[in-house]
Computed example of a mutant assay.
Amino acid sequence: MIREARIEDRLAVVAMLKRFHAAADLPFHFSPAHAERQFLAYQAAPDRLCLVTEGDDRPVGVLMAHAVEHPFSGIRMAGELCWWIDPAHRGHSARSMVAAYERWAVEQGCAIISLAGLGSDPKPTALYQRLGYQPAELHFSKTL
């Protein structure tokens, strides 16, 4: 089942964000306090979204997104902050989470929606293209 996150999902979501961070192999430490603040902001604000998918009667996936006005065009667009589904629960729930995200973006008046992938993993790219998404940017990071 996919639903909007509730405050009682806080610890489960922070734990998933930690797994997301580890899988992304990001070059900085994970801060549970910062992750919790983001969860609270995305869970409460009307222009932000925090979805969870349940499995085994607990949250096993999270998608956090926001709706903003694009600075160069004035159109509203939805952007994903993070998307994580525990590996044992991936599959159909991924498409359902994206569909829920897309419905929310339409409700927000967004004309564009985006998703990101972690590094060079081809699986998200293939899924996104099957769902009608096209490559738009490629980001690179460097630790200073």
Rank of each mutant, 00 (worst) to 15 (best):
A65F: 06
D121F: 06
A65T: 11
P87G: 09
A35E: 03
R19W: 06
P27I: 00
Y101R: 05
Y133V: 10
Q134A: 15
W104C: 00
Q108E: 14
A78C: 13
A24E: 08
A136W: 11
A15P: 02
T143N: 10
G55L: 07
G119M: 05
D47G: 11
A65N: 11
D86H: 13
E80Q: 14
R95E: 14
L81F: 13
L115P: 00
A15Y: 04
R58F: 01
H34V: 05
W84D: 03
V68Q: 14
L127E: 08
A41H: 03
M64S: 09
E54K: 02
R48T: 10
E4A: 12
H21L: 01
E137A: 07
V98C: 04
A67H: 07
T53P: 00
V13C: 05
S96M: 07
L17G: 06
F20P: 00
G119K: 04
H89M: 04
R6N: 07
S141E: 13
R3V: 07
G119V: 06
S141R: 12
I75C: 15
G117H: 12
P46C: 05
H21Y: 00
E8D: 12
R10M: 10
A12L: 07
F28R: 06
T53W: 09
G74E: 12
A5R: 01
R90V: 02
F39V: 05
I85F: 05
G119C: 06
W83R: 04
P122G: 04
R19V: 03
A5C: 08
W84I: 02
G61W: 00
H89D: 06
R3F: 10
P87F: 08
S141K: 10
A22C: 00
V106M: 15
I113F: 09
L131W: 04
C82V: 13
D9R: 01
A33C: 00
Q108D: 07
R10G: 12
V62D: 02
E137Q: 10
A67E: 08
T53A: 13
A33R: 02
Y42C: 02
E137M: 13
Q129P: 12
T53K: 00
L49H: 00
H66Q: 14
A88C: 05
I85C: 10
M97F: 02
V68W: 11
I112M: 12
Y128W: 14
S93R: 11
P124L: 11
R6I: 07
Q108R: 13
L26A: 01
M97I: 09
A44S: 15
H34C: 00
A5H: 04
F30Y: 03
S73R: 15
R37N: 02
L26V: 01
V68K: 10
Q43D: 07
F140I: 03
F140W: 08
E4V: 10
G109C: 14
G117W: 09
D57V: 06
D121L: 06
Q129D: 11
D57Q: 12
D56V: 06
F72I: 14
C110D: 11
S141W: 12
A126T: 15
H92T: 11
D47I: 04
E137T: 12
F140K: 00
R130K: 13
P124K: 13
C82K: 07
Q43M: 08
R90C: 07
A23F: 13
D25H: 02
I75R: 15
Q108N: 12
L51G: 02
D56W: 08
I7A: 14
F72R: 15
R48K: 15
